[in-house]
Amino acid sequence: MSGGSTIQIDRLRRTFRTGGADIVAVDDLTMTVRAGSLVAITGPSGSGKSTLLHLIGAIERPDSGTITADEIEVTGLRRTRLAAYRRSIGFVFQRYHLLPALTALDNVVAPVLPYKVDFRKADRARELLAAVDLEGRENALPAQLSGGQQQRVAIARALIGRPRLLLADEPTGNLDSKSGGEILNLIADLRATYGMTVLVATHEQRIAARADRVLRLRDGAVVEDLDLQVGHPASDTLTRLDQLRA
């Protein structure tokens, strides 16, 4: 992987119609994410964390505003190029979405199976499973793995296409505290190893200790932006985030 993506967001807005009323999920949001950085997006449920990631990943379309990834305006892409952009991103979700009839190895290979790539798919999948500490479990079915192990397979699957951008939406939501901490540490370690830009939406304040930047959302807007690369100690940041919890 040749460095992470730079993401520029300008006046992004997304609303949903619920019960006859408009709910603002992302409210006129503007920000720049540095290439190769690890950004933790925190905030209470309904603050817009998942919607923001879905907009950056082109799973949803904004009502207005623009998203630019490496000088490509994502919000202006048509269907074919939009699909190619989605394939260039690694996604990790709260639910693992593994195919139950496939082995761990085959689940990792699945996203690139229909496409011509410049690497040996099975070899790359084995390398990634080893990177997430699942060497020797290549032939295990999802039902034979713990929740934390299934999420590790999902992370390896997200990396099979060599993405410059990894989006993780509540990746520890279905895990116990110990497994959740291990997954957050793993994501941070993989960012360092592969040089990706990583955005993690999470309720877990511990990710702040490994992040370059922590954004706190409320009602779709950024209410706190802590940049750890300009001298904020991680312990101070954790204290500050605890004070800001809703």
Score class of each variant (00 low, 15 high):
G3Y: 12
G3Q: 12
T6R: 12
I7Q: 03
I7Y: 00
L12K: 10
F16G: 06
G20T: 05
V24E: 13
A25F: 03
V26F: 04
M31E: 13
S37M: 10
V39Q: 09
A40P: 14
I41K: 04
T42G: 06
S45H: 08
S45M: 01
L55V: 03
I56P: 01
I56C: 00
A58G: 04
E60C: 00
E60F: 11
S64Y: 11
E71L: 15
I72G: 02
E73H: 04
E73N: 03
G76R: 04
L77Y: 05
R78F: 06
R78S: 13
R79C: 04
R79D: 11
L82K: 05
L82G: 07
L82M: 09
G90A: 00
V92W: 05
V92G: 03
V92E: 05
R95G: 11
A101E: 14
T103F: 01
A104Y: 08
P114F: 06
Y115T: 02
D118G: 03
D118H: 10
F119S: 08
A122C: 08
R126A: 05
L128Q: 08
E135T: 10
G136K: 14
R137T: 07
R137F: 12
E138C: 12
Q144S: 15
S146G: 11
G148H: 07
G148R: 07
G148W: 05
I160F: 00
G161N: 03
P163Q: 12
R164I: 12
L166T: 14
A168T: 02
D169E: 06
P171W: 09
T172Y: 02
D176V: 08
S177E: 07
K178S: 05
S179T: 10
G180N: 10
N185F: 02
D189P: 09
L190P: 03
A192H: 13
T193R: 10
V198F: 13
V198Y: 05
T202L: 01
R210K: 01
R216M: 11
A221R: 15
D225I: 07
L228S: 01
V230K: 07
H232R: 11
P233Y: 08
D236Q: 10
T237I: 15
T237C: 14
L244E: 11
